[in-house]
Design a protein around this nucleic acid. Structure first.
Length: 421
RNA sequence: GUGGGCGUAGCUCAGCUGGUAGAGCUCCGGAUUGUGAUUCCGGCGGUCGUGGGUUCAAGCCCCAUCGUCCACCCCA
């Protein structure tokens, strides 16, 4: 048995990389244009950071982390998400002191889950976080930013924005009590998962897909009755601003998913084109989290995009993209010409930065060489035979357009390739 | 963790009721001695995921196991 990649950890092969580059570059460009700054974070942290940050009782911390013992006995974990690390770093370096900060980061995250479409054990997230703003304007801008990203990628029409408010922690606690009190008498009629959540995380029962459970939920207490005035005002302010910005959304009172740390706003961008894992971006406000991780009380809001899912969606909507082709394919007829060809290629790379030149390192018949040049996707072929070397020139042949073949000295070749690249 | 589908050449897949392992694409060579894309000819390529069982005989049937995909769960 040959060695395979670890389950849920994928190789991205050269032919699919063009799409990834395009998407990553777009994400970075648009996010930078909103004034967010990059922060780079370690892949590993003390396990306790995630236990405190993500929530002890979440599935992520309970059973999905890659945890190992360091040599001195410390418990370390591969990061399952980015927000906790981001806050840890910001606190550690004093970046949150009396100021608004906006960061972005991207990179692999790790969760031990059963892989399926759009869900991998190593997956890429692109996150954006805003600290120090109590106002709903923070969420509004994050949503505007995410919308701009999806616009730029041409996938926005396929997405819907769902928003909800979870109010303040006190509102949530009160509602939680009321919900449990309502559901308890029906406990025996709930599906198994929901029954279990009655103790652990009753709010998530609201999101159950089980029909009977949903029927029971019809008459459950309404969350909005438990929101205090400030929470209602906060949410109303956000909705109003989104309306002005003409960003369409639907309020989904059942949107209670996500991690434990959310307060007030939660939102998700969802597609129906990817099967079961349709959430492409999720985020919200997490006002208590900085304090919970040892910092001074600091409001925060942010989101994480699932880059793997965005790539899948882009592929589903836009089909094949052309892979990144080389520009120049250089071929020699006989081994005697290699020295000449190697030197010309080296000089060309110096003269024309950004030009991609492949030198085919087996000599051969001209038909063979051109056939290979054609298949490489190169725009032009450079040919070196006995004649070219003796005259110190190159034969340039256009492979993609109807232009006459040329024989050029080095200066003329540089000019020609420089103009077209 | 639970359920279902699928594992045959590098890739996509045929393979009938159990009876000698197939095609297309790719790759290599030739038709073509300095001009590619089309066409034609030839060639390389296999522990049929793995291990056991039934049988005169297993790619096909049975059991186990691994991998993979999809879904549940959870999440981005």
């Amino acid at each position: 048995m040959t060695i395979q990649s670890v389950r849920g950890m994928r190789d991205l092969l050269p032919e699919e990389i063009a799409r990834w580059h395009h998407i990553e570059n777009t994400l970075i460009e648009v996010t930078q244009s909103f004034g967010f700054r990059e922060i780079r974070l370690p892949l590993m942290e003390f396990t306790s950071l995630f236990a405190r940050g993500v929530g002890e009782s979440t599935d992520i911390v309970e059973k999905e982390m890659y945890t190992l013992s360091d040599r001195d006995g410390d418990s370390l974990s591969l990061r399952p998400e980015g927000t906790a690390s981001c806050i840890r770093a910001a606190i550690q370096h004093g970046l949150l002191h009396n100021q608004v900060q906006q960061f972005w980061y991207h990179g692999p995250m790790f969760r031990y889950e059963r892989p399926q479409k759009g869900r991998y054990r190593q997956f890429e997230q692109f996150g954006a976080e805003t600290f120090g703003l109590e106002s709903f304007t923070a969420e509004a801008e994050l949503i505007q930013l995410s919308a701009a990203v999806f616009d730029a990628l041409g996938v926005r029409d396929d997405l819907r924005l769902e928003i909800n408010t979870l109010g303040k922690p006190a509102d949530r606690a009160a509602y939680r009590l009321a919900l449990v009190a309502y559901l308890q008498p029906f406990a025996s009629q709930l599906d198994e998962d929901s029954r279990r959540r009655l103790d652990t995380n009753p709010l998530r029962i609201l999101d159950s897909k089980n029909e009977q459970t949903r029927a029971i939920l019809e008459n459950a207490p309404d969350f909005t009755d438990y929101l205090d005035a400030e929470a209602i005002q906060h949410f109303a302010g956000l909705k109003n601003l989104l309306d002005i910005l003409k960003i369409k959304y639907v309020v989904n009172p059942r949107l209670v998913r996500g991690l434990d740390y959310y307060t007030h706003t939660v939102f998700e961008w969802i597609t129906d084109s990817l099967g079961a894992q349709g959430t492409v971006c999720a985020g919200g406000r997490y006002d208590g989290l900085v304090e919970q991780l040892g910092g001074k009380p600091t409001p925060g809001a942010g989101y994480a995009m699932g880059v793997d899912r965005i790539v899948l969606l882009h592929e589903a909507l836009n089909g094949e993209t052309r892979s990144e082709a080389i520009d120049v394919y250089c071929a020699v007829m006989d081994v005697a010409q290699f020295g000449h060809a190697f030197e010309w290629c080296a000089q060309l790379r110096k003269q024309i930065p950004g030009l991609s030149i492949t030198l085919y390192k087996s000599a051969g018949k001209i038909q063979k060489q051109l056939k290979r040049a054609d298949k490489s996707g190169a725009r032009v072929a450079l040919l070196f035979g006995e004649e070219e070397v003796s005259k110190n020139v190159a034969t340039l042949k256009w492979l993609r357009e109807d232009k006459a073949q040329q024989t050029l000295d080095f200066a003329a070749l540089c000019k020609c390739l420089g103009e077209t690249s």
